[in-house]
């Protein structure tokens, strides 16, 4: 993900129209251009509920539009928008009271069926099984390509914490994905 590019001319004129006149057509164009990626990102962060992800996407656009006048175009619009989406997602996770950004109860790993991870769908499911905090950092770093510095800045944590979260996320993901008969079966139900 190239997060250092500047805003494209197309987005710039659309944003200007939305800010100046509340142009609905311009907004719809922006929406259709960026929502599919935003929705996929939010869907992963929130753990796979489409209904919840749609609520988050809607709230993201509302927050983004209310802050559009302050958007200076110094970064890619999508980067700025996704950062808003990440924060809305994080708020949602907190509301669910199951955001364990800094702590993980190793005994709380979900039940999985070892040895059945064979395709992208299985990987998606395994990611969805991660604790919220781990999943958030893993999605941003390993899938979306954010740097630890960017994650730290956006989530208001230290770079060290981001690295630690990613380390734990990968370790947990590997446990979840470990085939049957391999190792100590830690990925099976601990509860």
């Amino acid at each position: 993900m190239n997060r250092s590019r500047t805003i494209s001319a197309g987005d710039k004129s659309l944003i200007a129209s939305v800010v100046r006149t509340g142009d609905q057509r311009a907004f719809r164009t922006l929406y259709r251009r960026h929502t599919p990626h935003l929705f996929q990102l939010v869907l992963r962060i929130t753990g796979g509920s489409r209904h919840e992800a749609e609520d988050v996407v809607q709230e993201t656009w509302v927050r983004a539009c209310s802050r559009l006048p302050s958007f200076r175009g110094e970064s890619v619009f999508s980067t700025w928008l996704f950062a808003v989406g990440v924060n809305v997602s994080r708020d949602r996770l907190r509301q669910r009271s199951r955001c364990t950004l800094f702590d993980l109860d190793e005994n709380a790993l979900p039940l999985v069926q070892p040895g059945q991870i064979r395709d992208r769908i299985d990987l998606e499911r395994a990611i969805a099984l991660l604790p919220d905090g781990y999943r958030l950092v893993l999605v941003l770093h390993d899938i979306e390509g954010w740097k630890h510095r960017e994650i730290a800045e956006e989530l208001d944590i230290s770079e060290g914490t981001s690295k630690s979260q990613l380390y734990n996320a990968r370790r947990t993901l590997r446990k979840i994905l470990r085939p049957a008969g391999d190792g100590d079966h830690e990925c099976q139900q601990h509860r």
Partner: peptide
């Protein structure tokens, strides 16, 4: 995948919400 389409009604829902808040006037 990096992209996925949300439900068809989400766009209308979002536009309606923004219009209600006065952020979209068209």
């Amino acid at each position: 995948s990096r992209e996925q389409e949300p439900g068809r009604l989400l766009e209308e829902r979002t536009v309606a919400e923004l219009s209600e808040r006065g952020l979209l006037t068209g």
